[in-house]
Design a protein around this nucleic acid. Structure first.
Lengths: 159, 159
DNA sequence: TTACGTGCAAAGGCTTTGCAGTCGG
DNA sequence: CCGACTGCAAAGCCTTTGCACGTAA
């Protein structure tokens, strides 16, 4: 996943502040820190990983607050929650439309643009008299390094 | 989701038996019961729900065994595990080839052939040096009857 | 000042694991 | 017979919740 350009990350942070102000919710150090950490990510950090990064950045945030803030961010639509079937959630800035290739063997996650897929799905939706809004897509397979090996060993990837 | 035709369910069960035999794994009452319960489903039952159905059908199966058997079935590729972000897993027969259009307002689910999407994804996977194995796709939008109405009411669709 | 946020610790809920007993092949 | 399976109960793990204290506005 590509890291958000600094200005875009800043803009998302600003939108978060506005959202809080509009609802008369306190703008706290923790909330800004959590939002900033997610917007700065170039991957899909888990809660634990976010906690580590915040700590490393000198912004310690309690676990409960971290969870509560992420929930808030997801509700505002600024952050997206992803589930790769690992038993815990991952988070990413809700910037763009991309989908994921997931290696069934080693768990590697690679992103690709969802544009082509989306164009096709708009047509498909229309054929079924649906108005396309959004889609969720995961492609499971074997990455470059794993595809060379024995192909029918049970995999851990699917969960 | 549509229930599997009886013959197809039977065929999946047979494939499961063969898989077990091939690996010299015991074919037990519990394993057949669990597999049968999943293949007979016309929805996406959770572990708890499967447990209930098995019990109702006179096939009590311990929780641990249920989890272990489902894992086995997923590894064989005969059953698919789904995560709707509810905090627990759901299961369905892996009778493939269908994706879903889901109405964000009324919940209507319409299946459509995943062939076109799959062809595209094979190419995409290849571009990223992945070997395509399978995909999971949901398209969220508004169905024919709902699309006429107010379009920006918050939806429950995402998690 | 006051409502809401925060952190800790405990509780929750789903899933996995250890182990003694059982059974399929 | 032996290796694998079962079931129970306990442990694990991620996430949520209760509560006393702190803080943005």
């Amino acid at each position: 996943m590509t890291r958000l350009p600094p200005d875009e990350a800043a803009s998302l942070l600003e939108r978060f502040r506005r959202h809080l102000r509009d609802r008369r919710l306190p703008v706290t150090r923790q909330r800004l820190a959590v939002a900033g950490a997610v917007f700065a990510a170039d991957d899909h950090p888990s809660v634990l990983e976010l906690s580590r990064r915040l700590l490393a950045g000198g912004d310690e945030v309690g676990t409960a607050t971290l969870y509560r803030t992420l929930q808030l961010l997801v509700e505002t639509g600024l952050v997206r929650e992803r589930d790769f079937g690992e038993g815990y959630a991952r988070y990413e800035p809700a910037a763009e439309g991309h989908d994921h290739l997931i290696c069934q063997r080693c768990g590697l996650v690679v992103e690709f643009s969802g544009d082509r897929v989306e164009r096709m799905l708009r047509v498909t939706a229309d054929e079924h008299h649906f108005l396309y809004r959004r889609h969720h897509l995961e492609v499971h397979g074997l990455c470059r390094t794993c595809r060379g090996r024995d192909l029918d060993t049970p995999t851990a990837g699917d969960r």
